[in-house]
């Protein structure tokens, strides 16, 4: 049981770390490709969506990949 719990926690931590890196990349480039309405949005907006981006990054990666060719 202990081993299983520890593996799950490590996997969760790794998943969230990838999410954090994705979020930081999005801050530099990518967010406006995912959603053009983010252009000109204030820093407070970028902070408020941070937890969601870190948790749900696969949904946004998919969106970024499908939108990229048309940009």
């Amino acid at each position: 049981m202990e081993g299983l719990v520890n593996i799950c926690l490590w996997l969760a931590a790794a998943y969230l770390l990838v999410g954090l890196i994705f979020y930081l990349v999005c801050l530099v480039r990518g967010m406006q490709t995912i959603d053009p309405d983010t252009v000109g949005a204030p820093v407070s907006f970028r902070l408020i969506i941070a937890p969601g981006v870190i948790i749900l990054w696969p949904a946004l990666v998919g969106k970024w990949r499908t939108k990229k060719p048309s940009e």
């Binding site: 995912i34 309405d37 907006f45 969506i49 937890p51 969601g52 749900l56 949904a59 946004l60």
Partner: peptide, 16 residues
């Protein structure tokens, strides 16, 4: 509840 709070902004409504 964390998942719901994190996605409460309209950005998520549009993009999800």
């Amino acid at each position: 509840l964390l998942l719901m709070a994190a996605t409460s902004h309209d950005f998520w409504l549009k993009n999800l």
